[in-house]
Design a binder for these strands. Structure first.
Lengths: 143, 143
DNA sequence: CATAAATCGGATTTTTTATTCTGATAATAT
DNA sequence: ATATTATCAGAATAAAAAATCCGATTTATG
């Protein structure tokens, strides 16, 4: 079981982080990313297609093709990837699954969860890939 | 898509909250809970079985049977239900899905997520059903 | 221009999760 | 004591999500 993101989203985040620590415009095949992250090539391919559609990464077909960051690491945030793959519903839905949870008709943990949810959103939307570069580098070399 | 808990866990939380606002030892059939929470009777039945196994609620078979809280609302916490159904892995696993995420080999958001995760855990383990009673009551009458 | 290498995108398979069905069991009433 | 009723609890089914496969297409290179 995953923590809050779908497994596909986790992989998307990992893949984009991987691209962000490499030189700009350097291109990687799904196979290369797959090898580095130790996940199936086909699954990487699938996930990167989704991210290509949403404009976060670019793809080049044919020989010497592959995937690359479409924007600079300083203008991409983790929340962008989450939004592209899982969407933002988790930041709106009731954590207990009650229908119609709102400030007017709150669930028992509405207020407390709201604070946590906002903090999580901030965490994902404040820092850019550029700012995470060093930490990312360190983690990926130790995979 | 759910927020962090499985749908089964959400229903478990709702069902236990429902029982907690009723007089102690009062017994409810799966059908009654189902009607109140507006979810299929069979699914309620299934979820309450799991909670019965883990000792949070009790069950009585036969005519006039049903389910009831096995302990007092002041000694049950939301985390107990989460643990019984989804387990506590979400409080240990890496939010980005990286293997071997730890203080020694942290992912890019390890520290920040750790804080959020601990806050969430606290939220679920600090308050008892008794303390949530009023809020629960208010929410359930408005379903 | 033909070949090789690589993606794309849909289709398929597998796995997990959600939901429903059914038989065994328990309790009440006659 | 037996029949009847209503439950629980496990098994079976359906639905959703994850993972994989494959053919069509694209592009660089010889």
């Amino acid at each position: 079981m995953t923590v809050i993101f779908s497994k596909t989203c986790e992989l998307g985040l990992q893949a984009v982080l991987f691209l962000s620590i490499k030189k700009e415009k350097r291109i990687f095949t799904a196979g290369e990313v797959s090898k580095e992250l130790k996940v199936p090539k086909e699954y990487v391919s699938k996930v990167m297609q989704i991210l290509t559609e949403s404009g976060i990464i670019g793809s080049k077909k044919g020989k010497n093709g592959g995937f690359y960051l479409a924007k600079s690491p300083s203008s991409i945030k983790l929340i962008d990837i989450v939004e592209a793959i899982d969407g933002l519903e988790i930041f709106n839905n009731c954590v207990l699954g009650f229908p119609g949870c709102s400030n007017e008709n709150p669930c028992p943990v509405h207020e407390k969860w709201g604070k946590l949810r906002d903090d999580a959103y901030k965490m994902l939307s404040n820092e850019t890939l550029e700012q995470l570069k060093e930490k990312t580098l360190h983690k990926l070399v130790n995979l």
